[in-house]
Design a protein around this nucleic acid. Sequence first.
DNA 1: GCGTTGTGCTACAGTAAATGTAGCAAGGAG
DNA 2: CTCCTTGCTACATTTACTGTAGCACAACGC
Lengths: 128, 128
Amino acid sequence: MAKQAVSGSRPVRGSRTGRPIMALLDLLGRRWCLRILWELRDEPLTSRALRTACDEASPTVLQTRLSELREAEFVELGEGGGYGLTPLGRELCETFMPLHRFAERWRSSPSPGLRGEGRGEGEPPRRR
Amino acid sequence: MAKQAVSGSRPVRGSRTGRPIMALLDLLGRRWCLRILWELRDEPLTSRALRTACDEASPTVLQTRLSELREAEFVELGEGGGYGLTPLGRELCETFMPLHRFAERWRSSPSPGLRGEGRGEGEPPRRR
DNA sequence: GCGTTGTGCTACAGTAAATGTAGCAAGGAG
DNA sequence: CTCCTTGCTACATTTACTGTAGCACAACGC
């Protein structure tokens, strides 16, 4: 049962500015949100398969995100169980598909951090 | 932040799977991250201008995100102050541009929630 | 010199959110 | 019936974010 959803409790940061892009960025910027959409990009998954795919994220936050995504009509719960993308959600997913290729190139770029290496502190730490 | 001695970041959830897309999705899925990139899409902003643009987000998390984004080489701090996108960051931002048009259409779609309306059985349970 | 303003950046208490473990009711298959 | 899987939730712990205040440094005006 979609019990809580966002009903009033969370105004979606940025939506007060009136720009829907802000509401969207805020929604997508919540933890596991992008990941969930990404994992559903190919085929529907059951809640537990999704949990497994999402690196065993806690079911609490997964359910919360799924409620929010269902409310936004990006994700839906199928007849016989299993979460899948709505046409709208599939469209959204297409939007950041190029991210995949970008990520590959990003990895090969000389970015030192984010892969276990500390920023060597060899660069000017402050520009002052 | 004590896992790696890196200035502001941690090992990036999902990077252990070895897939760079996961690291990227995790990084972008942190609060205000997408928003920061979005606000810098046109021109560099000073830290305070960025803070204003980001709906007065707390400087703590803003600095943290900026450190992470700088480490990922999406953002850089210019000579005379002011944060701007790197070529890599600009490229990433281009990826998200279609999101703008999508958001507009999303708003006009019959999605009831995210603008104050619950899904029907709205009931604020309020844990804690 | 001095004070003022504007950078980037940090401390810290308070609060909101995520984690991790456990468990529920409902539905099928055996 | 039991066994198993579905979606989903409770709750204590841990982590992340908020909000306010303030720092050091630099460039301006006086």
